[in-house]
Write a protein that binds this DNA or RNA. Structure first.
Length: 578
RNA sequence: GCGCCCAUAGCUCAACUGGAUAGAGCAUCCGCCUUCUAAGCGGACGGUUGCAGGUUCGAGUCCUGCUGGGCGCGCCA
């Protein structure tokens, strides 16, 4: 439709002798917020008024006439400051029902991504313990965003960055070593600065089983490396298990240690040096909170300020090893070299202070060709019946992801995590999200899908199940769908591809959850209309044509809900029974 | 002290990247079950979009300055 408006505009421009180079790209054609304004509204007249040198209405009137002539258009009116409101013929909408059924699960898929490759990095929790509840949000967000981008025609890589190179994995190894001694019969106390979690007891036992007592009398230099890599493997095995339980499947796990060993950091540093973006300097102490052991020290610095950061950032620690930042630069260059100029990182809110420098680094190493979007997921506050949840069986201080999965299951967890914009904090109450009521969005949407399936089952008893399969229904005559709420539901369903495109481009998967809530509400509303007016019931045993048309609409509804839930990674249930 | 994020109905949140009269749910009140799942639906009530300016045909959305809350601030990741 937008193309047709543009064509009409160009025709008009030629006819009226408007100047060249009009800002047609700023002209929009989209459904207005208020449905009473029609199906499509365009701001063309207001955008073009100034460059053309005419009043908006003087442009709108002839444009409206041109649009009126189109077959698909029912009526056109000029409104407000110069909006042109277009109402499509209702047959255009009815035809959408068949189109949805023909497309099936593929309905909503778009090609706006045009096969462009996007790398989505998410979770990336340190391999020093089990995933906890806070990781769930980033995991679900990243996974849904990846699915959404795929639906919109991007080629997506889901990726997990394993931070297995820093000091903390040495701490992990030392902690595991103590548990190893414990497993061999010693009584140990876990000193300050080590990981106290009980989960490391299993690691200690596993080391004892594999290696026996060979490390007991060895110095740290001997056992640190083998125990570290063994412990990391076990931790990552747990992480993978939790991710699978949550329904998250990564395409790739990238190891920080492997990058360092591969000299990737040296290479990226050489590149930065060649571009004159590295120097040795002394940083000012941080204001407000000066560390006790602060002393001015010359450091190898990256000129982050050249790319919009507030200060230049250190690349080397005082012991000469690379900072985490250096490794991360190398990692992002690695992504670029693997063919991903478009990158999305999903981080927790506590990494907010890191965004500018990472974007600066990506701009620097890609010469501006790379594009990094960082999505910060705000905190999740867990409640159980209004009371904060703090206890954890395994980790001591944190609620683990598997605790939450045990409590509510993956479908509920995934859906709820997407019912807030990522930059809003989220309250998650075990009891509320398990309720079967209107104010639980998971249930509400699932119920709509189950109800649709139920209707089809019931209709099958009268009309025969074969008649109600999608291929048959898609060819049914939709002419009898005339109720305004039926047309309204069709319009909503037909908007699914638009939702996919806009949510994907904005990197905002939560829009899918809200959209499905709208679809469910429209469907439940239509259902209840049949209670007040029997002719509006979906199944009319004495009116085969009407029933088949409505079954097509019901199936289309179920198809769109299932498609949306698919993007969210939530199972569409076919029956909800107590 | 500096940076990033947030502030929308009594509560929890939306608002399609700047569009028209800012929308839902909960709560409160009034209605709807001999009928396809009432686990639902309809209606009423509810707003100076934290404050003050600015940009333009048009601002919850963009810019500046405040206020309040969250996160972070060399050699942790």
């Amino acid at each position: 439709m937008k193309d047709e408006i543009k064509a009409a505009l160009e025709g008009l421009a030629a006819k009226e002798g408007w100047p060249e180079g009009l800002p047609f790209d700023r002209v929009t054609a989209e459904p207005p917020r208020d449905p009473s304004h029609g199906d499509i509204a365009t701001n063309a007249a207001m955008i073009l008024a100034k460059p053309v040198g005419a009043k908006p209405r003087a442009i709108a009137e002839p444009l409206a006439e041109a649009l009126q002539a189109l077959d698909a258009v029912d009526s056109v009116e000029v409104a407000g400051p110069g909006f042109i409101n277009i109402r499509l013929a209702s047959d255009v909408w009815r035809a959408q029902v068949g189109a949805i059924l023909e497309a099936g699960a593929a309905f909503g898929s778009s090609s706006v991504g045009a096969g462009r490759k996007v790398n989505v990095e998410y979770v990336s929790a340190n391999p020093t313990g089990p995933l906890h509840a806070a990781h769930a949000r980033g995991a679900v967000f990243g996974d849904a965003l990846a699915a959404l981008l795929e639906k919109a025609g991007f080629v997506v890589a889901r990726e997990y960055y394993i931070n297995d190179a820093g000091a903390q994995v040495d701490t992990l190894a030392r902690s595991a070593y103590l548990r190893y001694r414990e497993a061999l019969g010693e009584t140990v106390t876990i000193p300050e600065g080590h990981y106290p979690g009980e989960y490391l007891k299993d690691v200690g036992k596993a080391i004892a089983e594999r290696d026996g007592d060979r490390w007991l009398s060895e110095p740290e230099e001997a056992w640190l490396e083998p125990i570290r890599s063994f412990a990391i493997d076990l931790m990552m095995a747990d992480v993978r298990k939790d991710l699978i339980a949550l329904g998250v499947r990564m395409d790739r796990f990238s190891s920080e240690r492997a990058l360092v060993q591969d000299r990737a950091v040296d290479r990226v540093l050489a590149k930065l040096e060649a571009d004159g973006l590295v120097y040795t300097g002394v940083l000012e102490p941080p204001k407000g909170k000066t560390p006790d052991d602060w002393e001015p020290r010359p450091q190898l610095l990256f000129k982050a300020t050249d790319f919009g950061d507030d200060v230049d950032r250190p690349l080397k620690k005082s012991d000469g090893s690379w900072t985490y930042f250096s490794n991360d630069i190398a990692y992002h260059l690695d992504k670029l070299e693997r063919g991903f100029p478009e990158m999305i990182d999903v981080w927790g809110a506590d990494h907010g202070g890191y965004v500018k420098r990472m974007k600066a680094a990506v701009t620097a190493i890609t010469g501006g060709a790379g594009d990094l979007d960082v999505k910060l997921c705000q905190l999740v506050h867990l409640f159980d019946g209004g009371k904060p949840v703090r206890m954890s069986k395994r980790a001591g201080t944190f609620v683990t992801l598997s605790d939450v999965l045990d409590a509510v299951g993956p479908d509920v967890l995934r859906f709820i995590m997407l019912t807030r914009r990522n930059d809003q904090t989220l309250e998650f109450d075990y009891q509320k999200v398990s309720e079967h009521s209107r104010d639980n969005p998971v249930f509400y949407v699932q119920y709509a899908h189950a109800r649709a399936c139920s209707v089809i089952r019931n209709a099958g008893e009268t009309f025969g199940a074969d008649e109600l399969l999608d291929p048959a229904l898609s060819k049914a005559s939709m002419a009898s769908l005339t109720d305004p709420d039926e047309i309204g539901l069709i319009k909503l369903l037909a908007g699914w591809p638009r939702i996919v495109e806009s949510a994907a481009e904005a990197h905002e998967p939560h829009r899918v959850a809200f959209y499905l809530g709208d679809v469910a509400a429209a469907f439940h509303g239509l259902w209840n209309k049949g209670r007040e007016d029997a002719r509006l019931r979906f199944i009319l045993e004495d009116d085969r044509d009407m029933t088949l048309a409505r079954m097509a609409l019901v199936r289309a509804t179920a198809t769109v809900i299932a498609s949306g839930l698919g993007v969210m990674g939530v199972t569409p249930v076919e029956e909800l029974r107590e």
